[in-house]
């Protein structure tokens, strides 16, 4: 066919889509703003629910997208996307122009900047870290606080930047709960003598095997769950974090000294995605993610003909869902080409 597709973003969705498109005989250009492909998967230690090593998924994606028909361009973000007849012209920040017969948008998500919730003290108190920071500690193999010691008591705050009208995110990021459970277990694996407390508003264990993981955290690892949204955190002179929270099930305010506080940062529309939306005319929803043409039948379809969505650029998704969504996007691209050739 000789058709050329540009995939924007070489994370899980982008690599999966690129690989599948090339298998269908299409020429693919894969654009990635970072210097390496992989996206967020590069930052994770293990994946829930089975706690598989994230490297395995990364290797799978690299294999899939290492095809001569795929040209990977790293360090390239899209400045402009304009329609020219039946094709699109993409201009990168380096000024390079690329023509595309179809575009797959796989710009992914950004993690909520935890410093925006000033009352939690991220970026202010040394021992308040984000879930992404904790993954880095897991990868380094050493979980220590600012004093160089291992933390005795760890607090995990759910819903940081999700389900929070105050930061403009009404939606649930839906993966932070399971991430918290997974991280709680991993903390206990690393530091068997430590105590872990999860502060949650609701436990949303909707995915396959999530509930089982939750049960395992209680049963096998003795992780504590306290229902209450953490209101504020402060620091003591010896560097401990004091959280103020209502134990809503006990009906009383609870104060607790904690050695390390981990904030479960939610997922937001990526900056690259927002920029693309602003310059291309792609529609976004109230949650600022890209808006699909139809929630049920057209979740890959955008308001621009020939531009398709793949992965978390439309809503929070886990890796499994992201891969499925990227494959669905490929199906839409193929159908688009076959309809247009008729």
């Amino acid at each position: 066919m000789g058709k050329h597709v540009v995939v924007i973003g070489a994370g899980v969705a982008g690599m999966e889509a690129a690989g599948r498109l090339s298998r269908n005989g299409l020429e693919v250009t894969l654009l990635e703003k970072e210097s390496v492909a992989g996206g967020h998967i590069n930052d994770w230690f293990r994946l829930f629910p089975d706690r598989r090593d994230s490297n395995e998924v990364r290797e799978y994606l690299i294999n899939l997208s290492s095809d001569p028909k795929i040209q990977l361009k790293t360090g390239a973000s899209v400045d402009k996307l304009t329609r020219h007849g039946s094709s699109y012209l993409l201009t990168t920040d380096a000024g390079e122009n690329i023509n595309a017969d179809a575009v797959v948008v796989a710009t992914g998500f950004s993690l909520f900047r935890s410093s925006r919730k000033e009352e939690y003290g991220y970026g202010i108190y040394e021992n308040v870290i984000s879930s992404a920071d904790l993954e880095k500690l897991f990868i380094s193999g050493e979980i220590v606080i600012s004093s160089g010691k291992a933390p005795q008591r760890i607090g995990i705050v759910h819903c940081v930047g999700s389900r929070d009208e105050k930061v403009g995110n009404l939606y649930c990021s839906k993966l932070c709960c399971v991430t918290a459970v997974k991280q709680a277990i991993e903390i206990k694996e690393h530091l068997p003598d430590s105590e872990v407390f999860c502060f949650y508003m609701d436990m949303r264990m909707g995915g396959a095997l999530y509930e089982e993981l939750y049960r395992e955290a209680q049963e096998k690892w003795g992780v504590n769950f306290i229902r209450g949204k953490v209101s504020e955190a402060s620091e003591t002179i010896d560097g401990k974090i004091v959280v103020k929270v209502e134990d809503t099930l006990a009906g009383r305010p609870l104060k607790m000294d904690i050695d390390m506080l981990v904030l479960m940062a939610g997922m937001e529309m990526s900056e690259g995605g927002s920029k693309l939306a602003a310059t291309s005319g792609l529609k976004t929803g109230e949650n600022r993610f890209f808006a699909s043409a139809d929630h049920h039948f057209g979740s890959n379809i955008s308001n621009l003909e020939g531009v398709f969505f793949a992965g978390t650029c439309i809503a929070p998704m886990n890796v499994t869902e992201t891969i499925s969504h990227a494959r669905a996007a490929v199906t839409e691209v193929m159908e688009y080409f076959s309809n247009n050739n008729r």
């Binding site: 000033e118 108190y125 402060s234 620091e235």
Partner: peptide
């Protein structure tokens, strides 16, 4: 100000 620890610090 307790909700803006940067200020009190």
């Amino acid at each position: 100000t307790h909700l803006t620890p940067l200020i009190k610090n």
